[in-house]
Amino acid sequence: MEKPDISRKRLAEAIAFWIFRLLSLGVMGILFSILGFILYKGIHVVNWDFITKMPEDGMTKGGIYPAIIGTLCLIAGSMIFAFPIGVMSGIYINEYTKDSWYRRFVQLMTANLAGIPSIVFGLFGMSLFVNKLGFGDSIIAGSLTLGLLALPVIIRTTEEALKSVDDSYRHASLALGATKLQTISRVTLPVALPNIITGFILSIGRVSGETAPILFTVAAYFLPKLPTSIHDQVMALPYHLYVISTSGTNINESRGMAYGTAVVLILIVLILNLIANAVRRYLGKKYKTN
């Protein structure tokens, strides 16, 4: 028998390893260069006034306070709408439907929903919430539209989270005379919660950065005041960023502000992620399963 060429095998192994390593380093490099570029360009405009003042002089001076508040309102609004519905749909699909064509059909439709371009959501939101239901351009219309966008992510992750809960917990609970609902609310859901939170984090990231869905449903070009009700229009960070970098009164003047806005948007997403992660970690520890 021919002697196996060990050195060649080792070489192939080393080459493959280095390719994978370089590729993953490349991805991280791209991420950090984007972050670095934006921070470099934008960090000098970010100060206390910038995040607490109204925009002035055709958005070339002052701050972006209303846009921050607007974005936070939209995140909160869309989550209030999408999180419970998404989680309940996920529970329904995973716990109540049998593994049948019906479940697969619902899953396929959810996946399709996730694949729809966000501008289509924007148009749909405009025709349904703004016009048909008469909400007008408002936080509620924008939140509902963003919520629709987030729904498939939440449904999918809830489903996956529940699927990863060992059946032995369900059986143990049922065998003790618990009903299905008791089993879900007292055992299955708490165990799945950390992973459901992951879906929550992902959808916050998605929602906070979207421009197209809010374009026709809520976002104001320039509105230097805070919303007083859910029927008000608001400014929002991504749209504000778009406006001052493409169609502002003086694009060159507001360039620095645009980068600053981007920094704030990234920071908000980052902070929300950190908070959600901490919650996830806490719950994970509380309901540790092994």
Binding site: A175, V191, K286
Partner: peptide, 20 residues
């Protein structure tokens, strides 16, 4: 069924205490 299961307890192959 839940009344029946109160009268007939079960212990499974793998120890499966709840994460409580």
């Amino acid at each position: 069924i839940d009344d029946l299961r109160k009268r007939v307890g079960m212990v499974f192959q793998k120890p499966n205490p709840f994460p409580k």
